[in-house]
Design a protein around this nucleic acid. Structure first.
Lengths: 188, 188
DNA sequence: GCGATGGATGTCACTTGGTGCCATCAGCGT
DNA sequence: ACGCTGATGGCACCAAGTGACATCCATCGC
């Protein structure tokens, strides 16, 4: 048995996403989100550091999967391929939730503050990736550059995958974007 | 002649940088910055949209230079080389101000909110770069990937240039990072 | 010379994000 | 029955940011 109605955190996340979608991030107060979840403003800030963070709870999981996949790539794999494997694993995680990922992305696209938060999450992914590559023996500045290139590929592939006209597989888009990246840096 | 003591904007920027450096971004109030500049909080917000923006007034100039250099690159230049020319021009702009660039970067490195703002400025650079490439006839997703790769190179080169132990030329670091990027994406 | 103009600044009130501190409440073990 | 513990509520408070209005003063037209 539980002492309190469980799922406060999940209820806050749902309420926030719904309200941000309905009236926009800026026109939604934390008090309103909390009220819809049957809680108070004070409790909201016990679960989330700020009003934006409520949209990014999945970032940790994604980063953990990315890092572990890269770390576990065969030692024979060249850095960029280890990164590619990690990105494809991350893509697999998102694959099932395309609908909610799109809804979330629309909300983020409508507000600069949310874009800032998203960018720092991606920067965190990049930093973690670079660290993992260094542990695989990649030296600087190659580690940082490989990580940044990987995240760039992810960003572009994600934008294509989330597009409403897209029917393609996320993993496929990752591989295609990576090939384009190789072509482009090679001077084509 | 001027009607009011000129340079309010510059005074606010100096005061903010000094205070952020002395006591940290979070421990500095806008009222304190304004007071040191001989102004009020309300006037601060007439010059800057928020407390962070005061550190990023140069971003517009940098972006304009980057874009115009890429746009004016010879038509024969392959996209990645046009971008490289733009990055080197941008590097030239910063080259003279290494001291203040370092001071500013230390302040930013100490605070996550400021890093978010910096990241969105870089994202804006990337978007402008991609647009310029499209106007040069580069198609998607190559335009976006080339722009992202370029900004990644800039980030890594900048980090190396700003490092206290570094003695190298910024443009040289840009070229070296770009070569590393090429090597790394080629699978080395 | 003088009043009108207009842009830069100040003043004030207000909303909201975010935090510290303490109270409350319900299930748990003893 | 009693105290403990962890989630939540209540409240006061600070600081960011904004809207509305007042004020000040160099310049311009007369």
């Amino acid at each position: 048995m539980v002492r309190w109605e469980p799922g406060s955190r999940a209820r806050l996340e749902q309420a926030a996403l719904a309200l941000y979608g309905e009236r926009g991030f800026e026109n939604t107060t934390v008090a309103e989100i909390a009220a819809r979840a049957g809680l108070t403003k004070r409790t909201f800030f016990r679960y989330f550091a700020d009003k934006r963070e409520v949209l990014f709870s999945g970032a940790g999981t994604l980063q953990a999967l990315l890092v572990s996949t890269v770390a576990d790539a065969p030692a024979s794999a060249v850095p960029i391929d280890a990164v590619a494997a990690g990105l494809e694993a991350a893509a697999g995680l998102l694959q099932e939730r395309r609908g909610s990922a799109r809804q979330r992305q629309l909300v983020i696209a409508a507000n600069a503050e949310l874009q800032e938060r998203e960018l720092i999450k991606l920067a965190s992914l990049s930093a973690a990736l670079a660290d993992t590559l260094r542990r695989r023996g990649v030296s600087d500045p190659a580690a940082g550059l490989t990580a940044e290139a990987g995240i760039a590929v992810f960003k572009i592939a994600f934008a294509g995958w989330i597009d409403e006209t897209n029917q393609r597989d996320f993993g496929e888009l990752i591989r295609e974007s990576l090939n384009q990246m190789k072509a482009v840096t090679a001077g084509r």
